[in-house]
């Protein structure tokens, strides 16, 4: 079993919270893991990505080979497309479809969605809206993670435990909201199956 995942977004959107949940879960599941991150405030507002690799065998490279990525998990729609050369033919593209517009030449959303839909295995969710409706605008990333959960090769329960662990210091209420968001994303993905 191996999953090579590219997490993408814009600096400051918190892609590392998703990486941390998957990382904690992978450890609990006894898997090997490598996670290359982007650090430094210089990345603020710019495109950021993280190479997250989990496997039941020892992992060699910190970087995912081109064309072998099993999943692009993006919190921003245009950013999900930046890493298409990395994606395997059968790979999944799972993204928030709420654009983060901080450049003057951001493309038309219609064109962005057309490109996303052209990937056979895609899930695009308006996670920002759903999170807001749920009463927890900050849980959008957990909805995206939930949408990826059926394809991660890690038991749902283990992922949920990881969410509990990650948000432990923030109290019961925050944990429950994030678990709910996760469940909502998972439900959307399962409808796709």
């Amino acid at each position: 079993m191996k999953r090579d995942i590219i997490l993408s977004g814009v600096g400051g959107q918190g892609i590392l919270s998703i990486a941390n949940v998957i990382g904690l879960a992978a450890i609990e599941a006894g898997l090997h893991i490598k996670q290359a991150e982007v650090h430094g405030m210089s990345q603020r507002g710019g495109d950021v990505q993280s190479n997250l690799r989990i496997s039941d065998r020892e992992i060699a490279s910190d970087l995912i080979p081109k064309g072998q990525c099993d999943m692009i998990l993006s919190v921003e729609p245009m950013e999900s497309l930046r890493y298409l050369p990395m994606l395997a033919t059968e790979g999944w593209l799972i993204t928030n479809n709420k654009p983060f517009v901080n450049i003057p030449d951001y493309p038309e959303m219609e064109d962005v969605m057309k490109e996303i839909k052209s990937i056979p295995n895609n899930i695009a969710i308006d996670a920002d809206r759903l999170a807001k409706e749920m009463g927890s605008a900050r849980s959008a990333n957990m909805i995206i993670l939930g949408a990826a959960s059926p394809y991660l090769g890690i038991e749902i329960k283990v992922l949920e435990n990881a969410i509990k662990k990650l948000f432990k210091s923030k109290g019961e209420n925050v944990i429950n909201l994030n678990l709910k968001a996760f469940g909502m994303g998972k439900h959307i993905a399962e409808k796709k199956l």
Binding site: G45, G67, L81, R82, P85, Y106, E115
Partner: peptide, 20 residues
């Protein structure tokens, strides 16, 4: 030899880091 992979779509624009 590596197989051709999908290109980056032309609509994807650069997003340099910027002042907050």
């Amino acid at each position: 030899e590596f197989e051709e992979t999908r290109p980056i779509p032309d609509i994807v624009k650069g997003r340099p880091p910027q002042l907050c």
